[in-house]
Design a protein around this nucleic acid. Structure first.
Lengths: 166, 166, 166, 166
DNA sequence: TTTT
DNA sequence: TTTT
């Protein structure tokens, strides 16, 4: 089924430091727990109530893994864009279990730091799109080589060619 | 924690007719299963592959329940906006289990039909926002009482015509 | 045309204090300028470049106007959800001009403060949905009257505990 | 300013066929006009009203240009994800003018056909992400090289099956 | 279980 | 200029 969209947008805080994990093939992912909450006034009692929701986010996107590892910490506020994915696994009794995670992988994954932390002025990799590490010399948005090319941001500056964002 | 966002956006197809359910207090919800899928070319074999993801959507928003009940069917394509919510329950063995659903409830819930189905020209309730049933005569966006109230859709109809921002 | 979506999501900083404006009928709106930016590495020179985009946001939603007036200031970081609207006006020479704004009005408008500012612990109105001021004692999402109504945040508190979908 | 998000999501119909445009350097873009609309019941008169908004969308993303050119036509319904960009230009009198467009360029751009049109079963390029043309044999999301790389869609195919987060 |  |  082309013609579908699967998108999650979260703004929340990390409940703990992110956990990195390596694969045999050299790949790497980072898992983190993000809290979002909503508050409301109870109709009956009039008192304010709050409900916190915990989300499991798994970052696979190459450009985003170092951002998560190097800059996110317990308490960090972050904007996350990913997709919903439900995984099937077996518990010790052999029963099927399901876990739903927000997966930041591939295009349309995004991760943006939202708090003013102490930053190293020599670094500029505090946020990123899915492929920042991988195609480091692509245009912003990766529209390399084409019209988007020269613009330095404006898609319409014509002559776009020498511009190669990122 | 104010300062958080919990949003899911799906465009997909219903795998089966929606299931309505009533509560003791007169309330009602509708549950449905939505499929989204992505396809890609396998790096190794070069063949096209596809993966389908199934989502459980629960509609509580008053204005959206009738839309889901009356117009959505198996196969319908729909745009859905809701929030992620994980529910804890006990299986027969008494073990804790968790289910994650997309909940369409309250503000910022949305449900839009995307296929051209046979429609009854006398009806105009084929899509809706969270409260369409409840404040049926409000302006678009429901900004009653103020400028928006008389605006009838244009934010600037109410004396803002001379407003020339930037 | 039902079956359409018009949504803008911004995370950015205010370039100046918000400007409030009243209408004859008692309504009120708040206008603000929000900066977003993207940065990339220039392909040719290898140096980092940045482009800032300025957005005009107009808040009409009743629940959001006080949030914008009371808590947003020059420099504030904010999450905004609204819709695109292009307004036609005449310049002094009588020529048609168009301005495009992000309008926060009605359902699906949202405004969330993202920086840790000095806060008054006695207040709890630092962010909001479109109608927070208006239906102040509604449940989160405002799904009053039904199952959601008593739910107090959890969609399943009202007799749904035994509900185990899928 | 890292730490910002500039995102537009539209579901609407094309008012006319898309217009392609080539650049000297071989690049190409496609411009199209998209209509979205909202309807509401007038408070005073009780009659149904409707307002249509027209959006100018410019597609630069390499993977999306052919989708727009080959499959979108006047009347097509489409899901679009891009960013807001305001362009400055001079009218004949030499006055500064501004135009705001939705730019589909780079990461996080997306374009999904939503109507069932006559399709050629031999083709599979009816929708796409920003770079589909460019990295045509990447995994879904393009997370090549790492765990995701071999995954073929499931983030957990590469040794993650035993991973049971939370 | 949908859709292409 | 689309669509319902």
């Amino acid at each position: 089924m082309s013609g579908s969209v699967n998108k999650v947008i979260l703004v929340g805080n990390l409940g703990a430091d992110p956990e990195a994990r390596s694969f045999q093939n050299g790949g790497e992912c980072v898992t983190m727990r993000i809290a979002t909450s909503e508050s409301w006034k109870d109709r009956a009692t009039g008192e304010r109530r709050e409900r916190t929701e915990w989300h499991t986010v798994v970052v696979f996107a190459e450009g985003l893994v170092p951002v998560a590892k190097n800059y996110l910490r317990k308490g960090s506020k972050v904007y996350i864009e990913g997709k919903l994915q439900t995984r099937k696994w077996q518990d010790q009794a052999g029963n099927d279990r399901y876990s739903t995670e927000i997966v930041c992988q591939g295009f349309n994954a995004q991760l943006v730091l939202l708090d003013k932390r102490e930053r190293d002025p020599g670094r500029d990799d505090y946020s990123g799109h899915a492929h920042d590490g991988r195609w480091s010399n692509s245009t912003p948005g990766g529209g390399a080589g084409g019209a988007a090319g020269t613009a330095g941001g404006s898609a319409f500056d014509a002559g776009l060619d020498d511009h190669v964002p990122f």
